[in-house]
Every structure is written in C-alpha cells, then in structure tokens.
Amino acid sequence: MSHKTLSGPQAPEANLDQPLYTPIKRRSFFMYAGATAGATALVLAGCKDDNNNMPGMVNVGTGDVGVLNYAYALEQLEADFYTQVRMGSYYTSSATAAEKQILDDLYYHEVIHRDFFKAAITAAGATPIKPLTTVYPAGTFSSKSSVLATAKAFEDLGVAAYNGAGQYITTPQYLYIAGKIVSIEARHAAIIRDLVKEGDFVGSDIVDIAGNSLEMSKAPSVVVATANTFLADGSKLNVSGLG
C-alpha cells in the first residue's frame, strides 16, 4: 500500500541524486490518497473502455518507444536498488572486496543504463516515463542474503524481460542497443547467482537445461507482475500497450 512509500526503508538520502523528484512524488501521493474515495466511480468508469491510463499506473506506451520506456522503467528499478545497496549495512560493513567490486560496477552500469534510456528516448523525440518510486521489504539492504537474493531476482528478471520484448522492437538500431544491454544484465545475473551459490550461473529456474538450454524469456505482463511489487502506488507499470 501507499504508506510504504513514506514509512518504508527507503532513506531520505537515497534520493540525494534526484532532489527535484521527491516533492513531486509526495505531492502526487497525497493527491491520489485524498482523491481515492471520490474518484472510485471515475476509475471504474475509465476501466470500461481503457484501463491503460488508470490513476496510479505508469503506462509505458506502445511501439518501439513503449519498449524503450519499459526498459527505462526496469533500469530505474535496478539503478535505485544498487544505489541503496551501497548505503546499506551489508555493503558498508560486511561485503568482501570481490563483492564490493561487483556491486560497485553493477551500480555504475545500471545508473548508466537508466540515464542512457532517458537521454535516448528524449533524443528520439519521445517522452520518457516519470521517475519511479520504489519500495522494498524492511531489512532488504542489511543482510548479504537479502541483498543478493534481490539482486538475483532483478538481474534474472531484466534478462528475461529484454529477451521477451525484443520481438516487439521494429527498428534494428534499437534491437541492437537492447542486445548490448541484455548481455550485460546476463553477465551481472551470472556473477550474482554465483555469489549466492557457486556454480549457479545457469540455474534450471532460468535456463532450460533439461531441454534446449535456452533462457526462459518472459512477456512484459509477467515481468511487471514482479516488478510492480517493488514499485510504490503511483509508480506501478502498465505494459498493456506492448505486443
């Protein structure tokens, strides 16, 4: 529920790199919270012919730009996650040298992916989706097991998402860029899985080893069902325009 946005573990300093966004998010939170009762009928009415623009949902749009915004949304989630990881007590007090080196690089890469998409979508003459507000279970950033389990979930999800959305891209250059990023996500996923359990880089939960040894890609609707559990009300994704 929405209250997690305000009382959850996301420390105020987590957003120091984006000071302009916080007041907007809080204002929109109160706007939605206050309007909920009166707007219910309107919401339901809206659902009848178009549930793409439900209040509280972020619609990534359609076509190539929709896929780019979908990717931008997932990169926002990952970038925010590693930003908070590096401020959490696992990273600051117990991570090994190798783990810190890896988590630092993942932080750099995902922040670069996030702001690259924002710039690229803008450069393409389209409008990037807004900055998203994340929510995590309490204690996510304080233990090695919870940080790595969440990182594993995000990286595997990212790979499955890019692989599943490639078919919706119509411009070769965009598909090529998605390919340049997804293999980095797969490299991330493999080493994070190894950190969780040595030798688990192609686990049977994500690669069909008993069959064709293909990654098990996921449709956007499946991906956002997971991604939305880490996104606050007002930031949850609607991908019904893709595919």
Binding site: Y162, N163, G166, A190
Partner: peptide, 23 residues
C-alpha cells in the same frame, strides 16, 4: 527480425552465452 520465433530463440541463446562468459 522478421521472424519473431527465431529472433526470440536467438536472444535466449545469446543471454546464456553471456552467462557462460561471465562465469
């Protein structure tokens, strides 16, 4: 790109190769 089945299969091999490379 014109064959979505082949494209998706190729992508699903591509990421497995990247996992191997990482490991």
């Amino acid at each position: 790109m014109a064959n979505k089945t082949v494209l998706t299969a190729a992508l699903n091999i591509h990421s497995v190769e990247a996992r191997h490379a990482s490991h």
